[in-house]
Every structure is written in C-alpha cells, then in structure tokens.
C-alpha cells in the first residue's frame, strides 16, 4: 500500500513537471483598436501587424499562444505582473518600463506625430493656436510626454484606451489635437474615419517619442526572452517579417 502511494505521488510529480513541455500555452497581449497593428477585422477576428508577428513568433517557438486585445495600460500591467507572458503594444524602451519588465530586441522603429483637423497649422509650440485639449493614449509614452511638457501650460489632456479612441476624440472635436505614434496615426488617417484629420507638423522623435519598438516580456522569464529574440531573428531571416510589413505598411518600418 505504501509503495503504491509513493508511485502515485511520483507519477503526479512527473505529470506536473512534464506538463509545460507537453503543451506550452503562452498568453500574448496586444493593444486593442490600433490600426494596422492590432484590430478586429470585419469578421470580428483579431488581426493586424502585431497579431501576425505574434503568431509567427509563437509558431517559431512551437508554442500555443492565446491572444488578448487589451488597453495599453492593462497590457503593461499584465506583463509586469506576469499574468501575460509577453505583449506587443508598440512600446518604446524607457528606464521606468525596464524596471518592471523585460524588452526584446527591436522589431520596428517609430516616431510620434501630432494629428489635428485638416487645415490646422502648428503654432510655436507645435500645436494649433488656441488648443485647449490634447488627446493621448492612456499609459503611453505620449501621455507621459504631454504630462511633462504641454500640460503645465494649462492644456487639458484627454486619455483614451486605444489609438483609435484617441484620434476619435479629435475627429469628434473633443480635442483639438492628439499625439500618437506616427504609423498608428497614418493607419487612422488612411481610414474613412480619418478623412478630416491630418498630420500636424513634422513627426517627433526626441523626448523618447521616437525610437525602437520592443516586445515586452514578463519579468523573470529570461528563457522566454531568449526564445523570442531567436524567433525574431528567424522570421526576419525567412522573409515572413518582410512580407508582413509590406502587407500592413507602405514602406519598411524597421
């Protein structure tokens, strides 16, 4: 009897140890409503550049991935707290973020741009004269930049969970201007919802508003980080990454 108990305990322990290897399932978070990075298509399915990159990475890692479309702030918190294995939220590397999570090697490069209604002209501060409200994505680097610079001049800051919602505030006239990632803004401007909007001034890269974009990984997962970097190299070498950029962007975004 005692031997049977020991064998059963050993089998259970073996099953616990072998379980991740037999069927590894990773939770992948993407930001919601960010055309063309991650958005739901006409059929309601989650799609976009980041979604396809994420799937290609999971395939390269031979992992089963479960994608979640969440707001940027929730994505950051989920990765930082380990509830999400890795996230593709177009995140720039900042010291604050590096303290909370791990960053992969860059997989594309970004700038930030002001978006305002067509015909608007930038003032001395880069905003349309008389602007009282600016919209930014909650938890984004743009929100932090606005909070550190423009908000001190009495400018009201409106935040939204997604880039689409941020630019919708400008399109709806709730904000005179929005500060968003250039490629996300380009995607919105090229859509019907953005037909009345336009870039305001030249794209910005200073003040941590531009730079390389990384996949964020839950802290304490160096093996997963290494596997992700290896998968990024693999999809770049096999041409699948290049095909995805051509699919979603009019030029090479790396």
């Amino acid at each position: 009897m005692r031997a049977h108990r020991l064998m059963a305990l050993f089998a259970a322990a073996l099953a616990l140890v072998a379980r991740p290897a037999l069927a590894e399932e990773l939770t992948v978070a993407v930001t919601e409503n960010v055309v063309p990075f991650s958005f739901r298509g006409e059929d309601g399915a989650l799609t976009g550049f980041n979604v396809e990159v994420g799937r290609a990475l999971c395939e390269a890692m031979a992992a089963t991935c479960r994608f979640e479309a969440v707001p940027l702030a929730q994505l950051v918190d989920g990765v930082a707290e380990g509830r999400v294995d890795f996230g593709l939220g177009n995140l720039l590397k900042t010291p604050e973020r590096e303290r909370r999570m791990a960053f992969s090697q860059p997989y594309w490069r970004s700038t930030s741009s002001y978006v305002a209604r067509r015909g608007a002209k930038p003032g001395t501060d880069g905003l349309p004269p008389g602007s009282a409200t600016i919209a930014v994505q909650a938890g984004s680097r743009q929100e932090k930049h606005v909070g550190e610079t423009l908000a001190q001049n009495g400018l009201a800051v409106l935040t939204a969970a997604s880039i689409g919602d941020v630019l919708g505030l400008v399109a709806d006239g709730k904000a005179e201007v929005a500060l968003v990632p250039t490629l996300a803004g380009l995607g919105f401007l090229r859509s019907p919802a953005g037909k009345d909007l336009d870039f305001l001034g030249e794209p910005l890269s200073g003040g941590n508003l531009g730079g390389s974009v990384h996949i964020v990984v839950a802290p304490g997962r160096p093996e997963l980080l290494a596997r992700l970097n290896g998968a990024l190299d693999a999809i770049q070498k096999d041409g699948s990454y290049h095909a995805m950029t051509r699919k979603y962007f009019p030029f090479s975004i790396y």
């Binding site: 700038t111 741009s113 250039t182 401007l189 336009d198 794209p203 009019p250 030029f251 090479s252």
Partner: peptide, 21 residues
C-alpha cells in the same frame, strides 16, 4: 485625390522614419 492624399501622408510618415537618421 484620396489616393494622392494617402500617398502624401505615407510619404510624410516615411520621410521622418528613423531609418534615414
């Protein structure tokens, strides 16, 4: 005109891409 506008917007975004920095 829409096509020209999208092309111009894309050219705007492309011209400031860090790839030329």
């Amino acid at each position: 005109s829409r096509t020209r506008r999208e092309a111009a917007l894309a050219a705007e975004a492309l011209a400031f891409h860090p790839g030329f920095a």
